[in-house]
Amino acid sequence: MPLDTSTYALAHLRLDGRRWNELRRLHAQISTQAAADGSSYLEQGNTKVLCTVSGPQEQKGGRGGARDQGNEAKVDVEMNIAAFSGMDRKRRARSDKRVQEMQVTIASAFQSTLFTHLFPHSTITVTLHILSQDGSLLAACLNAATLALIDAGIPMSDYISSVTVASAPSSDQSLDEMDPLLDLNGLEEQELPFMTVGTCGRGPGGGEEKVMVLVMETKVQMARLEAMLSVGIDGCKQVRGILDGVVRSHGKRVLESKVS
């Protein structure tokens, strides 16, 4: 594949002009939809995700044995990739294996972060609408879901913040030298081995720092993995800071509107 490594090696600038450790513009909003219990809209570069949360509520549909769900809430994730989201129009069936895998990944990550034991016999449904995709889809979905769950007021131990990180061959092509790249766009994702890291907590003083999600579908040399992971965890911290800013500014707005 024609990776544009030539330009990267010359100036150490990526296709979109970023340095190796720069994130794309991350813009998010909370409470975008009045009809949902919690909602958020997140743009990570050109990847745009809209997330709504409904619940915790009793499971609807009255399926047999639906009442007996054990002592904690179940997290259900529905992902809907709009047909117009990619470059070419493509309708994805709901049973698409890739989509299902991402749904399970997100659900299991939040299942252990949310205080689900507070809501026995109930379901929390997270619906993700992908409006536009340009790389880092899983990461953007995790970030958007975090914001929407916060908006829904569901108690959780900490933000799950997520980012992708890739390993790019360095300028002199020697094997032991490589550059991890942070927050990939769609083109880079096609050409480089990458992984999605999602962490929870921010280390000393802010709770235990844990890697909650780690997904890698491409091959990479074992030696490169450690550097990638550490850059990824660092990127997650940056993302967490941004998400925190969004939540705080929204909270401030809500308070101000209540006071006046």
Binding site: A34, A82, F84
Partner: peptide
Amino acid sequence: DGTEAIVGVKAE
């Protein structure tokens, strides 16, 4: 009332 729709038009 909170109902919301997004329409995307694509041409090939």
